[in-house]
Amino acid sequence: MNDEPNSSALATTESNLEGDIALGRPASPEDLALVRKLLAGDETAFTSLIEAYHGRLTRLALSFVKTQASAQEVVQETWVGVLSGLKRFEGRSSLKTWIFRILINRAKTRGVREARTVPFSALGDGDEAEPAVEPERFRANGGWAEPPHRWEDDTPEALLLRGEARQRLEQAITELPPRQRTVLVLRDLEGVSAEEVCNIMGIAETNQRVMLHRARSVLHRALESYLDEE
């Protein structure tokens, strides 16, 4: 099992089971090296892969399914999908995007079964335009009546060290409507590009941006109300 797999196999154009669509950034040399190690049966490589991704996949899965138990099952299925699809990984997307896409395909199927999700393509109910800031905080001419108080902390890390800030933020993410949550997790926790998120979720760019705006506004307000009461 120590044979180096033919590297050209990673660059073929044969279509992939999980839809390795050529959009967004292609796999990095590190990704390709990791895939070669995995295909060679390198256990250390697999350990580092699951340690890096398991928690992140669980968090992403929770935006599609109702319970922690379901999320765990989706993540397990994802790992099975990763292993069975690895030989066909072509490196046309990054390993991260490829793994997330497998998870989302699994999670969507299950989410539909559990009637948690509505189609990604529609904004639909529960996503009605909430203003970014409570309208009462503005005067009739649109200027601030109740301007934001200054936050003392200058870095996100300092902010998170504040008592319950981390908890409040985690809680607010949990309570986001499912699709907003998926967009937020992919964009702001995982650093996936807007283009890739649209591609993975099958939504339009403006739609993605509206959901991101609403989700960020909710979290901003959650942090603000916490810091104001502190």
Partner: peptide, 16 residues
């Protein structure tokens, strides 16, 4: 504050 919020979300670590 909006930028700090986005940064803080990005700095949340997943469960081991």
């Amino acid at each position: 504050e909006r930028k700090l919020t986005i940064g803080a979300v990005g700095a949340l670590s997943p469960e081991p």
